[in-house]
Write a protein that binds this DNA or RNA. Structure first.
Length: 257
DNA sequence: ATGGCTTTAAAATAAAGA
């Protein structure tokens, strides 16, 4: 099975491009972030017409996540990340699909740093680590994927200097990410591309796409039960160059059945 | 150059993104 993640940056604005990608690439599971719509406005019917069933967790104006599955309805396990009853942002949804636990997240950006948004990001990462520890303890095959808003290492950005004061590269951000990995998770794209230089995001501004000035912030983390089944992982880079594209490209992992 | 684009919300600007 192939499990994909795509920060779509406004699901309604991207529908033609998104349907195109689903039909051309036909992922078994497609996780979306930044759907930027309320629950009532999610275009579930458009996905059903091409054979995908969906669950989603929307929010007015920004954030919002969804899980699409080819030919079956994802079995919802959890919506929203635990650990903070005050947190009302729609950034997490978890489901069972084809015997795999699929955990789709849109991690807070955290800029500007320092400040309350950065504090929220770091707190969110601690809460995520707690949820992922539960999944590890249960020993279920799990893929935790999405827009992490983390540039893990210097090799994951076109310019270390340009990103030096950005929340995505701060030592605290990276520490939190590697604390999670060291609990026993495998970063699929990094494992298959250890030298780096793989981008998943290119800014809309300053000709970043044309200059190939991007970075890697969309990640697919595999539990040991899934890491044993890793066949391939990659970025559908060409979709970033199409008309009315998102600023992210889709990322995917292929698991042996 | 806290710029440079783009979407959403809502009616002209403002917030958010990374």
């Amino acid at each position: 099975m192939r499990i994909a993640s795509f920060n779509i940056n406004g699901v309604r604005a991207r529908m033609p491009r998104l349907l195109e990608w689903l039909e051309e690439r036909r992922p078994t599971v497609a996780c979306l972030q930044e759907i930027k719509c309320q629950d009532a406005d999610f275009p579930a019917h458009e996905f059903e017409k091409i054979g995908y069933r969906a669950i989603w967790h929307g929010q007015k104006g920004f954030n919002g996540v969804a899980i699409l599955a080819d030919g079956s309805e994802p079995f919802e396990i959890q919506r929203g990340l635990g650990g903070d009853p005050e947190d009302e942002q729609s950034r997490y949804i978890e489901a069972e699909v084809g015997g795999v636990r699929v955990c789709n997240l849109y991690l807070p950006n955290g800029n500007p740093q320092p400040g309350p948004k950065f504090d929220y990001k770091l707190a969110w990462m601690r809460r995520l680590r707690a949820r992922m520890a539960e999944l590890r303890a249960a020993e279920v095959p799990a893929v935790v994927l999405g827009d992490f808003n983390v540039i893990p290492e210097d090799k994951d950005t076109f310019s270390v200097r340009a990103m030096a004061s950005d929340a995505l590269t701060q030592p605290e951000t990276r520490d939190a990410y590697f604390r999670i990995l060291n609990d026993g998770w495998t970063d699929a794209i990094d494992t298959l591309n250890p030298r780096g230089g793989v981008w998943t995001y290119w800014d809309f501004q300053a000709g970043a796409w044309q200059r190939d000035q991007g970075f890697r912030i969309d990640h697919l983390l595999l539990s040991p039960e899934c890491a044993d089944r890793l066949v391939a992982a990659g970025v559908d880079k060409a979709y970033r160059g199409r008309e009315k594209a998102s600023d992210h490209a889709p990322v995917w992992v292929e698991l042996r059945d």
